[in-house]
């Protein structure tokens, strides 16, 4: 609980209890890296916020622009795409494709009127439980700053 407490302490400082916005974040995690890292985080007892809903994908290159949009359309406050380190994709270049699609979707989100920072791609290896947890914590902070998905209003 140490990390969760840390965030809570930071975010809740000066605010009455129960007013902090708890975002729902969809995390598309690659089977070969981020998903394994999340698994490892469990084995290592590393805590990360429960705001993420992890969806395992065979490769981040499998993800399409429509998937990200659908997540937002259905009420996700943020979408995190977690793929292998660049150069380390199990399928050679899937994560590089995902990076391009994420960037394209970020521009599209701006056109739509949704903050582009609600969508982010990170790269972690299967051994990087701690960096994954840190990335999730950072994402939660970002989305808390942005507030709830404007489509829910």
């Amino acid at each position: 609980m140490q990390i969760k407490d840390e965030i809570d302490k930071q975010e809740k400082s000066g605010e009455p209890a129960g007013t902090v916005f708890e975002p729902k974040i969809v995390a598309f995690c690659c089977h070969y890296c981020a998903y394994a890292a999340a698994d490892l985080a469990g084995s290592m007892r590393i805590q990360y916020p429960a705001n993420v809903r992890i969806i395992r994908t065979p490769c981040t290159g499998r993800l399409e622009v429509g998937y990200f949009l659908k997540a937002f359309e259905n009420g996700a406050d943020g979408v995190l795409v977690a793929g292998c380190l660049e150069g380390g994709c199990h399928f050679q270049e899937g994560n590089l494709l995902a990076k391009k699609r994420v960037n394209y979707t970020r521009k599209l989100l701006e056109e739509i009127g949704v903050e582009e920072d609600r969508l982010r791609m990170v790269n972690v290896s299967a051994a990087e439980a701690r960096p994954l947890a840190d990335n999730i914590i950072d994402m939660v902070k970002t989305i808390r700053k942005l507030g709830p998905n404007p489509l829910k209003g």
Binding site: E64, V65, G66, L69, K70, F72, E73, L108, E111, I112, G113, V114, P150, L151
Partner: peptide, 18 residues
């Protein structure tokens, strides 16, 4: 088909925000 899905999603969201 893929672009239809993307543009339809985008229009649904953008119109809601408007």
């Amino acid at each position: 088909e893929r672009e239809v899905c993307i543009i339809a999603s985008a229009l649904r969201m953008a119109s809601k925000l408007h």
